[in-house]
Design a protein around this nucleic acid. Structure first.
Lengths: 132, 132
DNA sequence: CATCAATGAGTTCTGCTTTGTTCACGATTG
DNA sequence: CAATCGTGAACAAAGCAGAACTCATTGATG
């Protein structure tokens, strides 16, 4: 899935134009990048945290010549996935879905969300014990 | 920077309501999560790639008792920052900006950013030490 | 603003993974 | 189509993950 497909999917969830989604997504990405460049963490709950991570200088080598080369200290972007994201990827939790209906179901969604909210918590607490 | 602040920043870039930005951002995040759960990679140029990463079972331990415990094989979300994102964070390249809108927002943003920047950093650094 | 939920931090420790170098070539994206 | 990105090679040091569980802090929502 690339950016264009992602934007298709996002636009398909609601009555929004692909152009507008593109602009907002681009702005979103830019703001994350700016914040991380500034040294800020960007925490998006249910998703994860973007932050800068320092890396020390060390020695590497040129794979072609075997020559030892110094790799300078630097800073890199890092993403730490949040618990929710981890849980759905690992299968410990099901991801909330129904993209097409979401717009229509929106009024009903809050109630469901509240119901699910209570349920997963219990499941989450019990699941670790069961895993043993 | 948290989600609300991010959404503020994104909405501040254009004439878009915070509500709409929230919806699109949430959809964006959900679509990424869904794709990763499906086993797809999500590549956003200029930003990076989200994908699932498998982890083998291994032995860990309970830090309290020292008891050896088996950690099951699992799958995790991973983000690989793209070259552009790496370059701006490392300082090898300056981040691109949109001057007109940014200039307008800049007067309001810097004060908040500066204040928060100073506070979170200090708190982050000092807090661990104090706890000890 | 108040409340509740989510997340972070802390503890030990070891095996495994990631990283980065250069550079040519193929793949992908806009 | 042009520009950018990903891949691969060898190799070693840096860095990470994660167990169980409690408490503190932060964030989201109504």
């Amino acid at each position: 899935m690339n950016k264009a497909e992602l934007i298709d999917a996002v636009a398909g969830r609601g009555d929004v134009s692909k152009r507008e989604v593109t602009e907002i997504v681009d702005a979103f990405v830019e703001e994350i990048k700016k914040a991380v460049v500034r040294g800020d963490k960007v925490a998006i709950s249910g998703f994860g945290i973007f932050e800068a991570q320092a890396r020390k200088a060390r020695l590497g080598r040129n794979p072609r010549t075997g020559e030892t080369v110094k790799i300078k200290a630097t800073k890199l972007p890092k993403f730490r996935p949040g618990a929710e994201f981890k849980a759905v990827v690992s299968g410990a939790k099901k991801i909330s879905t129904s993209a097409p209906k979401k717009a229509a179901a929106k009024k009903a969604a809050p109630k469901k969300a509240a119901a699910k909210k209570a349920a997963p918590k219990k499941a989450a607490k019990k699941a670790p014990a069961r895993r043993k």
